[in-house]
Design a binder for these strands. Structure first.
Lengths: 263, 263
DNA sequence: GTACGTTGTG
DNA sequence: CACAACGTAC
């Protein structure tokens, strides 16, 4: 079973890439972030006519998350038990019936934070706190849980090009790393890539502004996190870095988790 | 000799069409309107690398005229003797040495006028007055003169789909038709198409907003006007209406004047 | 409907 | 750098 996560930075603009990528890689589930489209304008048809199931939670201009799936999506939940933080659409969840039993899937788009002194930085912390509590509650109901998305934090030194420099800026401050660590520890989640692969410099995002100037100056800020019950099922995590080289690419690339769902 | 006129509605956006069209039709001269590009950002290279000569007079966002030519462009004149009306780049002229002697070519983009009560309508009248006086002066120096462009006026009933309705709106009011008639009479110019072809409903422009809804609801507002000295040389005028059906077309199509330049 | 410039966001 | 929205023009 392949569960993918991709911050597409506008689904409508990236739709050709997303459809081509789906056909090439045939995932079981694709979680999207930064769809930047209201629910009424969401492009359902290209997916439903492939026989896929769609759940989306979006707004005008900013944010927006979605789940596209080959399997039916059950118990779709928008936001935190139906309400959003700061009216921002950054979380969606659904359950799929896999071979070994139900898997709860969450697609999250964590706030960027802007800068250490911004009110958005405080909002980022609040979002992590809510997300952590939410995962604790969800995991009590759904032991087999996968949380994927754009977490806007690089976990450790292997996940940034220049750790000393990056630590001074948003996305790699000690505080943010702690928020992510707390999410994993209190939420009982494991960074699926690091369960199986310790290679450094495996990035998922390259800033539009710096990509052209400095080569491979990226960060790993998109993750697949799995609950303890799925720990042993992780077969691998791959980043589809080639997507960053396409014409008009997203600044993020797909992160694909493969799990064995039969016990 | 083929002298073409095309309101391209952004040269940068339409560049692929313009280059393909040039290769297909190999005009002697192409006059452009609504290039919407400052001189510093004008795409010279695609033309110069074909060995073509370029004169342009543009500004940011709006207006902008140009002449592309297989023959060298002499005595290039920007605006009305170097200055523009209302700081708008709507007129450019140059001389080419044709087989029968020099031909003065003017490319004009007449203001739209917006509505009868707009200050832009008064500006349209003022522009016609200046243009008429300018042509009178130019023709005294250059007997063989061609004035092409977007005149934003339909000359007579044959040039609109519904004359009664159109007469109430800008582009076909009696006043505007008179301004165009004055330009021709006082300027000593002839509407080249009507010298050789009386077919009605030969349009050059179809509004983006109405094109899809009502078929062939266009107007003839782009012309090739020739001086008395060239009257007998006119071999034909054709509208390349197929350009309106291309993907991402301009709302105007090329108007191509063919003249015999040998005496 | 199509295009451009500006502003706000990342 | 790239995206969405808004205002403006035709």
């Amino acid at each position: 079973m392949k569960i993918a996560s991709w911050n597409v930075n506008s689904l409508r603009t990236r739709l050709p890439h997303v459809l081509r990528w789906w056909q090439q890689h045939q995932p079981t589930v694709l979680c999207l972030q930064e769809t930047k489209v209201e629910d009424g304008l969401f492009p359902h048809q290209p997916f439903t006519e492939l026989g896929l199931h769609v759940a989306r939670h979006g707004q005008k201009s900013y944010n927006g998350v979605a789940i596209i799936s080959r399997l039916p999506l059950q118990d779709v939940a928008l936001g935190f038990n139906g309400h959003n933080l700061e009216e921002q659409t950054r979380l969606i969840a659904a359950t799929v019936q896999a071979a070994g039993g139900p898997v709860r899937i969450l697609s999250a788009y964590v706030p960027n934070g802007e800068s250490l002194t911004s009110t958005k930085f405080a909002f980022k912390q609040a979002f992590y706190q809510h997300l952590t509590a939410h995962v604790v509650a969800e995991r009590a109901v759904h032991p087999r849980l996968v949380l994927v998305g754009d977490f806007n934090v690089a976990a450790d030194e292997r996940d940034v090009a220049n750790p000393a420099r990056a630590a001074k800026d948003v996305l790699f401050t000690p505080q943010e790393r702690q928020w992510l660590a707390d999410l994993c520890q209190q939420g009982g989640l494991h960074d699926a890539l690091r369960l199986v692969d310790q290679t450094p410099n495996l990035y998922t995002w390259w800033d539009y502004r710096t990509y052209g100037r400095s080569q491979n100056n990226g960060m790993r800020i998109d993750y697949a996190l799995v609950s303890e019950a799925l720990r042993g099922a992780v077969r691998g995590v791959v980043h589809h870095a080639a997507e960053r080289g396409m014409v008009q690419p997203s600044d993020h690339v797909p992160v694909v988790l493969e799990i064995a769902t039969l016990p």
